[in-house]
Every structure is written in structure tokens, then in C-alpha cells.
């Protein structure tokens, strides 16, 4: 028998949720403020949004950021699924400890270290910093998140199906594409979405690895924030939060529709 939550439990959950969501909600509300000052409410207005779409620098940065995100998330997904398969099915291969170390360490590694070390690599091999260096840097740290998400799904997936396919003469790679992949595809998609979001969000690693023509949106937001709070940044932030919320809602409903018949 599970005891229900006590008054204290309810208060801690409530306070925790207020703490997590109030700052974001305040930011969104103030993006519709007609005044430039944050401490005065001067009425509802969407003028900061119209100003945004006229800001060609910002729109350019958004476009670069999206392209980097989609390309790096796709590379990260391919490599991350391979890493997950190796971790979940590989058994004890040589260098497994080092391999799992390299998969898990980037999840907690301070970004300044990852960013600086990647930059030095690009300088050492004589690669000009720009679009592709940011893509490679983002693919490197996001592939680890994909690997963790997919590996969690693989570890609950019955290996008997793969073994049956192989017993019937399927080569391992074909068993993977015909049996395993269709079963883990929701986790693979979730990994891709997570990699995309992390790439769109990254400031520190992009700052180290980008070149003159590849300033990303977080870099633009950061330099604007350094100059102070502005309603334009509130508006950009609200749009980004909205985009992520819509993305998660769409993903949630699609994956529910996919898994519903399987459960029945």
C-alpha cells in the first residue's frame, strides 16, 4: 500500500514547480510588454516580435543554428545508435571500459573544457573554423545523449527476436535493420530530437568552435544579454520555448499513436 502524499509533500512539489516554471512564465509575459523597462507593465503589445522578424542578423543566426542542429543531430544519431548497440549488445570487447567512459564523460564534462579542446584539435589539423567545425563539435557531445537514450531502450528489448532472425539465416546487420531498428525507432527519434535541442541551445562549445561566418543564435543572444535585459531577447526566448513545447507535444502525440496499437 502506498501512502498518499502528505501536506508537506504537496507543498514541496508545489513550491518546486513554481520555482521551475515562474521565471520562464514571467519572461514570456514580459515579452508582450509594451514598455522597454521590465519593472513597468505598459500594456499588451506584439511590437517586439515584429521587430525580431525585421532583424536580418538575428534571422541569419537562426538559420545557421537550425542547419547546424539538423546536420549535427543526424550525424549524432547514426553514431549514437551504433555506440548504444555496442554498449548493449557488444558484450565484453577490448577497450570497453574506455569506450563507455568516452560515451558517459561528455554528459558531465564542463563545456569550457570540451570547447577549448575541440578548438585546439581544429587548429592542430589546420581546419578553418566555421559551419562544419561547429557541426562536428555538436555531433561529438550530442551523440553521447543519443547513445544513453537508445541504450536504455535496447536494454529492455528482448534479444530473443534478434536471435530468432539470426537463427533463420539473417546476417547480424540485416537482423538489426529488419528486427531491432523498427522496435527501437521511437527511442532513436527521441535521441535525434534531444540532440537537435541540445545543439540549438549550446553557447559555450559553439563560441569556441565557430568562425566569423557562423555565429549561432545563442551566441547572438549571449552578446545581447551582456548588454542588458531587452524585450527583443524576451521575444526570441518566448519563440524558442514555444517551438520546443510544440516539438515535444507533437513528438508525444506521435509516439503515443505509434505505441498504442502495439500495447493492445
Amino acid at each position: 500500500m502506498r501512502r498518499g502524499p502528505s501536506v508537506f509533500n504537496r507543498i514541496s512539489i508545489g513550491a518546486g514547480l513554481v520555482f521551475l516554471y515562474a521565471p520562464i512564465l514571467l519572461l514570456m509575459i514580459y515579452s508582450f510588454n509594451d514598455s522597454r523597462a521590465v519593472n513597468v507593465w505598459a500594456g499588451f503589445s506584439t511590437r517586439w516580435y515584429t521587430a525580431l522578424f525585421r532583424d536580418s542578423q538575428l534571422m541569419g543566426a537562426l538559420w545557421i543554428t537550425l542547419r547546424i542542429g539538423v546536420v549535427s543531430a543526424s550525424i549524432a544519431t547514426v553514431l549514437g545508435v551504433m555506440a548504444a548497440v555496442a554498449l548493449a549488445r557488444g558484450g565484453l570487447f577490448r577497450g570497453r571500459t574506455l569506450f563507455s567512459g568516452m560515451v558517459y564523460a561528455p554528459l558531465v564534462m564542463p563545456e569550457v573544457i570540451t570547447g577549448l579542446s575541440l578548438l585546439l584539435l581544429f587548429v592542430a589539423v589546420g581546419l578553418d573554423r566555421g559551419f562544419w567545425t561547429v557541426v562536428m563539435a555538436h555531433a561529438t557531445f550530442t551523440l553521447c545523449y543519443v547513445a544513453v537514450v537508445v541504450q536504455a531502450r535496447l536494454s529492455t528489448f528482448d534479444t530473443a527476436l534478434e536471435e530468432a532472425a539470426q537463427d533463420l539465416g539473417c546476417p547480424p546487420w540485416r537482423a538489426f535493420f529488419a528486427v531491432t531498428l523498427p522496435n527501437i525507432i521511437p527511442a532513436v527519434a527521441a535521441g535525434w530530437v534531444l540532440a537537435l535541442i541540445l545543439s540549438l541551445d549550446d553557447l559555450v562549445i559553439a563560441s569556441f568552435t565557430s568562425g566569423p561566418g557562423s555565429t549561432t543564435l545563442p551566441m547572438r543572444i549571449y552578446s545581447a544579454v551582456r548588454l542588458g535585459v531587452s524585450p527583443e531577447i524576451n521575444a526570441v526566448s518566448t519563440l524558442l520555448i514555444g517551438a520546443v513545447a510544440v516539438g515535444i507535444a507533437v513528438y508525444g502525440s506521435v509516439s503515443r499513436r505509434r505505441t498504442a496499437p502495439a500495447r493492445a
Binding site: 520562464i24 514571467l26 545563442p218 543572444i221 544579454v225 535585459v229 531577447i233 520555448i241
Partner: peptide, 30 residues
């Protein structure tokens, strides 16, 4: 889900939200 969701909103934006709240002429002091 509710505790995980903020992780998906930009880290930079979540920190910036606190700048707007805590700065001298910010929401907290208002």
C-alpha cells in the same frame, strides 16, 4: 515530465530569465 521539461528549454534563456528578475530595476524589486 514536469520536472524534465525545463531541461529542454534553453539553458541560456533560463539563466537570462533570472537576470530579468534579479537585476536592480527588475521584477523582484518591482
Amino acid at each position: 515530465l514536469a520536472v524534465t521539461l525545463p531541461f529542454f528549454t534553453s539553458f541560456l534563456i533560463r539563466v537570462y530569465a533570472w537576470v530579468a528578475i534579479l537585476k536592480p530595476a527588475g521584477i523582484l524589486n518591482a
